[in-house]
Nucleic acid binder design. Sequence first.
DNA 1: TCAATTGTTAAGTTTCTGTTAATAAACTGT
DNA 2: ACAGTTTATTAACAGAAACTTAACAATTGA
Lengths: 228, 228
Amino acid sequence: MERILIADDDKTSREALQLALRRDGFESLATQSGAEVLSLCKGENPPALVLLEPALPDRDGIEICKEVRSFSDIPVIILSSRDDVAAKVLGLAFGADDYITKPFDTREVMARVKAVLRRTRIHNKPKNTLITYENLIIDMNRYEAKIGGKVCELPPKEIELLFHLASNPNKVFTRDELLDDVWGFEYYGDSRTIDVHIKRLRTKLDGVSDKWFLKTVWGVGYKFELNE
Amino acid sequence: MERILIADDDKTSREALQLALRRDGFESLATQSGAEVLSLCKGENPPALVLLEPALPDRDGIEICKEVRSFSDIPVIILSSRDDVAAKVLGLAFGADDYITKPFDTREVMARVKAVLRRTRIHNKPKNTLITYENLIIDMNRYEAKIGGKVCELPPKEIELLFHLASNPNKVFTRDELLDDVWGFEYYGDSRTIDVHIKRLRTKLDGVSDKWFLKTVWGVGYKFELNE
DNA sequence: TCAATTGTTAAGTTTCTGTTAATAAACTGT
DNA sequence: ACAGTTTATTAACAGAAACTTAACAATTGA
């Protein structure tokens, strides 16, 4: 779930935005302080996007935008008042991704939030997308695996798990590492889940090759074992 | 002969520009309406460049610039008044290629027009507008598809989507990527839209060939699957 | 205006995913 | 080697998530 940070000192706007965000399945987080925007963006778990009112009490919004841009790519949408053209202009000049004029229609805000997230998501997609071994090809571009020339349909979680293991052949991963790497940082669930997915992969890759297979490392985790 | 579109509500400017353009061997075309700028740029025979005064009577010039950029690469030069800094900056932020401050020297305008055209011509390499596979031809020049020799009428969005998918056979596109690539960055809409268009395409291409079809990649997106 | 295209919504269906619990296997200390 | 303990395998189920589809609403252009 993506978290959106709302920085606005007007309570009414803030609440309207939080409500709209929640309705569309976003997590939200509000502050009135520019300093806090910065510390949240710098912190452990930065928001996916910032909705920024440029006239915050403690700091100039444009400065905030500039500074956020100096250390991260977190997208920023400026929530300027109708007549505050200067803020819009400067914001965009300093790297804001969009602007919205107050008073706003929350549906428009949501649409723009989604559009900006969509745009920014695109260019951080994985680069290295193809792995080939003896009679095994994993192509994350096509989202399919070829085993002995035959295309094997694998659901997303399974192919991602296989891809991750096969990207580091012979390296053992603990279940916790796999949950972090494949399921993602914030996943909270039982690590037996891994076992089940390994099992499902195994039944599909069963006896295909003796050069590679999914090996259990007892008491530790799993690895993609590759010989010769 | 390249055609330049002048969008300005001031008759004096317009005539000065038209004269200068003609003298340098350009065709010109003038309007006072923002809506017309858009329809001309979208039309059959779009201009090679737009000279845009941001304060048009019917629409905000910046919006126009943004919108033109959302569906094409036609270069735009902003003709802002001396004190309208906001328009300049916003215009550039939204993809304008240059700006000129009024009152202008027509020789300077011509120099910039030529410079911008030179720059953009380099990028506008001829695009591949024809795709052919086993009994499928997509001709984006004519905006039509032939399937088994028979012309199949497809509305614009559908053929654009099909063309884009078919341009990268077997590659999976997420809904977000398709919205960006086919609908454009500025599109604010729901990604379920993709599903509906896929469905419409499918009913039209149904069972035409077993060499290719539109495939759902569960949890990821869609692809144009091509065999052999 | 009408008709065609495009976008939205919601119900219905399919596929996948995580959990549980029973069973099997591997290790441990004696 | 044995009993006891820990860990892994497996199948079955329930719920969640994703896709399909149809019908309707909005938009666009003739």
